[in-house]
Write a protein that binds this DNA or RNA. Structure first.
Lengths: 354, 354
DNA sequence: GTGAAAGCGCTAACAG
DNA sequence: CTGTTAGCGCTTTCAC
């Protein structure tokens, strides 16, 4: 008691219980892990152990346990940007299911920085996480390849590395984009400007763009390189401003904007607010990715919604399958989930522009 | 090589390097930890060790290291709700500074569930995190008290447990609320309705309410219990709907709404959109907590902004101070940061209601 | 200049 | 039914 104020409190260990009871650590370990009966230990002894453990407030040192067992019941989640509600929701889906199986989830954000991504993967490996779920930056795949090489359980989400036998859970970005363009076309759009993020190495962006291109061709809409504007990911606001100035200007006169993610769409809204632009009277707006605010922005925004919780759930399922089976799983799965077009107010193109 | 396909790849350990070089593990450990010169080890030997380590792609097992060292260079962050952008930004501030000092940040969300909060604290302790930063649910303080009792380094953020000698970083919620009411009063508000979250055990809510009450008194504004509406935290949308129906109805006819957090304000916007309510013509709206969308919602929303990154930075500073000094710090600090009223469009109350 | 040995806290194999 | 021994991978005396 007198020692309470100074220094570390030195947690009680297995040995403390064993000693104070005059039994061996082995016995205590067995009892505490529920293998008491299994090993035929006197139920009376078991009770004494349990009681003592509670009395001394014993908590196993998971470091020691992990070291011995070779597993930690921890899984790591590396997201590109934790402040994006997209990932927060996915994380929820993962955590719920992981918890039910006795696994803890630790989340870290790579901030779209491939260097940081590598470090985080390394960190989780060094700390012996049992598996990883990653929304990769797709800029330096060395660490991902190493995971594969080393047979380390992991699942990619959101973004996919093509042509590789790797577990992944993504949505059908191509189809989602196609449906978006269909909707715009049905509302009379003739000249749709596309806002996408650059650099364009992200599979999500690529697929959305190709879906956009295919659909504009199908509907025989205007098609020219000018209509596709790349926005540097680290200056979305300024980039979108410039892009919109151009797309809305006399030279182009686009009648609709397809924003390839929620940040781009939000920036469009911001532009509209600050420049007195009316949506959809002056221009239609459709977003890939739905976020809460699109429900009560002005106007409400039509968007391609992704099944966020489901992405998380499928990913953790895949991962647990792999972790729980001793044999390395040879066939990896690529799960592709459908998107859902949520129609609101932002795409009613008026007569004049038809 | 043939073994690559089957089973765990068995990482290379210190011993592997030592054996393949015919030296001892001790030596390898020293060299790899930069204590080579210090221990007078042949610089040639050092080079060989370093080279071999790289060749075998050696990564220290942090579990073993942590077990031996009694520290893990890991700090845990437990937030109430990871999907709230508020915490995402705070986390960023923490992570940056922590990284600079060689500490890794792991984030978990308690989802405002005190049970889960306890489990997470326990988990971080079991895994020997070196310190904790917590936005507590304030519903069951046992685990927090235990941390204190055990001299475990931790810092509370956002919410504070009053009257206790505990490290904390919060904002001046009372003053922030007061300034908010000042602003509303200056714009002609006479009858301000307050929307707050219930149950009301959160220090943030309490302080915002008391600031509100003090200021309404100062300005001699209408004051009655009816004007304060409690919204159950788990049904914000419905609760806000009912509250607004009441506050806007003939019985009360409030001319302004002070939403005590961003979720409540967002729900007000949603209500306004769905019911054709005009802000600020029909009613003024002011939010405690600023979020991005308030910049381009319709109308833009005046809000009390908090210095999010700074909260994180101060918290990690406090924590590192405590972790890095061997002697337990006796005097804990309570840091209170100022808020900032960001004036936008939602509070221009028209003449008619003055 | 270098290495042997001990031990962090835990569990599994094997004895008795 | 219970205990002994060994070892996970690392660092730290202390001895040569």
């Amino acid at each position: 008691m007198a020692a309470k104020k100074k220094g570390k409190p030195k947690k009680t260990s297995l040995a403390d219980i064993a000693n104070s009871l005059g039994v061996s650590r082995t016995l205590v370990s067995m009892v505490l892990n529920g293998r008491g009966d299994e090993n035929g230990i006197n139920s009376d002894t078991q009770k004494r152990v349990l009681a003592k453990a509670k009395e001394l407030n014993y908590k196993p040192n998971q470091l020691a346990r992990g070291l011995r067992l070779g597993r930690t019941n921890t899984i790591g989640l590396i997201v590109a940007d934790i402040s994006n509600p997209f990932y927060a929701t996915v994380a929820r889906g993962i955590e719920d299911l992981a918890g039910q199986h006795g696994f803890r989830l630790m989340v870290c954000s790579s901030d779209e920085d491939s260097q940081k991504e590598s470090e985080l993967i390394q960190m989780f490996r060094d700390r012996q996480a049992d598996g990883l779920i990653i929304s990769t930056t797709q800029q330096n795949n060395d660490e991902i390849m190493a995971l594969r090489e080393d047979n380390y359980p992991f699942v990619l989400i959101d973004r996919h590395l093509e042509g590789l036998d790797i577990n992944s859970v993504t949505v059908d970005n191509h189809l989602g984009a196609t449906q978006a363009v269909d909707h715009l076309a049905q509302n009379g759009a003739k000249k749709i400007g596309l806002l996408k993020i650059s650099p364009t190495h992200l599979s999500t962006m690529r697929d959305r763009v190709s879906g956009f291109l295919d659909a504009t061709k199908t509907h025989m809409l205007a098609s020219s390189p000018d209509l596709i504007q790349e926005i540097p990911f680290n200056r979305v606001k300024e980039g979108v401003y410039e892009a919109l100035e151009y797309l809305l200007g006399d030279e182009v006169k686009a009648d609709a904007i397809f924003a390839a993610n929620n940040n781009l769409a939000a920036a469009c809204l911001e532009y509209a607010r600050e420049n007195g632009l009316n949506i959809p009277q002056d221009i239609a707006l459709l977003s890939f990715d739905d976020v809460r605010m699109f429900k009560f922005s002005y106007p409400t925004i039509t968007a391609v919604a992704q099944p966020l919780q489901e992405i998380g759930r499928q990913a953790i399922k895949l991962l647990l399958d792999e972790i729980l089976t001793k044999e390395p799983v040879v066939t990896k799965k690529q799960i592709v989930l459908p998107t859902d077009l949520v129609i609101r107010e932002s795409c009613r193109i008026p007569e004049k522009s038809i």
